[in-house]
Structure formats: C-alpha cells, structure tokens
C-alpha cells in the first residue's frame, strides 16, 4: 500500500544531473526496490559528472528549476577513472562563483551516490526537496528570464528626453 500523498502548497521543481554508471543506477535501484521518494526530481542522465557543464545548471535555473542536484560516482569509482575528480574541482570553483554573484547555495546540492546506494539516493533527494520546499520558489533567474532590458515603452523621463532629442 502506498502512503497517502501529502498535499503541499508548493511543489519545487528539482533537476538532477546524474552520471549513468553510478547515480542513475542507484536511482534505478531505488525504483526497482520500490522505495518512495519525491517525484519533484527530474533526472537527466549523463555519461559522467565530468560531462556536466556548469552552464547546464544555469540553464536549469533559468528555465524554472528551484533546486539542482548533481550526483555521480564516489571518488575512485569513476567509469572514466577521474571524471568525477575533475568535476569535484570544477564544481567547488563554480559554487564560489555562484555565491559571489548572490545565488543561495542551498539550492544546489552535490552528492556521490553509487549503484548500490538506492537508499542514499532517496535520502539525498528527499532532503533536498524538503529544503527547497521550505525555501520557496527560486525567483532570481526566472525574473531575469522574463525581464526585458527595454520594453519599447518610453516609460521614464530620461527615455522621453532622449527620444525628443533625436
């Protein structure tokens, strides 16, 4: 029997970028073992965490993600030897940059989840979902996406003056 699904005011959208060898298999294991985890997470499969470009994370936020998870093999388990170790450095730097431009790092989670860790996948996803739910929607990037530099309207005295001067 499934537990009664709780209704929430806000269902966050979470995008998970995962590597195919470990975390994807781990999530699959969680599924085949019939473990329950929030359906808020949309899983995108990559060959390796080393293939996950920081620009994908930006894209996810721009297109409406409220939280992002990046997950791959534990150090030493990488199918390509060291892709995850390169990624570890890259994402450490990327976090620093995002923090500097003012993104709340609580919206971005990194984890190592192996093919045998279905339970860990459930924990990571559940915790992230609940954290983001408490934080509310991610507005910053969405606001940028909907904002135009100039709407075409002569809405300010400066613009009107500039227009008259033409």
């Amino acid at each position: 029997m499934h537990a009664e699904k709780q209704k929430h005011d806000f269902e966050p959208k979470i995008v998970a970028f995962v590597c195919t060898w470990c975390t994807y298999a781990g999530a699959d294991l969680a599924g085949t073992s019939r473990m329950q985890y929030p359906s808020n997470v949309r899983v995108l499969k990559f060959p390796c965490t080393g293939r996950i470009d920081p620009v994908f994370i930006l894209r996810a936020f721009q297109r409406g993600a409220d939280g992002v998870l990046v997950s791959g093999c534990h150090p030493g388990d990488c199918h390509y030897m060291a892709g995850n170790l390169h990624a570890r450095r890259r994402f450490a730097a990327f976090r620093g940059l995002l923090d500097f431009v003012g993104v709340d790092l609580n919206r971005l989670q990194f984890s190592w989840v192996s093919a045998a860790e279905g339970g860990k996948w459930v924990d990571v996803v559940t915790e992230l979902t609940e954290r983001i739910r408490a934080m509310g929607p991610m507005e910053e990037f969405k606001a940028l996406e909907t904002e135009e530099c100039w709407s075409g309207a002569l809405a300010t005295p400066e613009l009107q003056e500039a227009y008259k001067a033409i």
Partner: peptide
C-alpha cells in the same frame, strides 16, 4: 544554444558566469 546571445538580463547573467568560470585558474 547554451547562453542567450542577445543583451537581455538572463543571457547577460549567464554570459558573465560562464566567462568567469572559463577563465578560472
């Protein structure tokens, strides 16, 4: 398209993050 190429707020933010990231180190 990874980064919007017109000077709109979303693309500008992405461009500057990408630029800083690609030059890190």
């Amino acid at each position: 398209q990874a980064v919007e190429s017109t000077p709109r707020p979303a693309g500008n933010m992405a461009w500057h993050i990408v630029r800083a990231m690609h030059l890190a180190g």
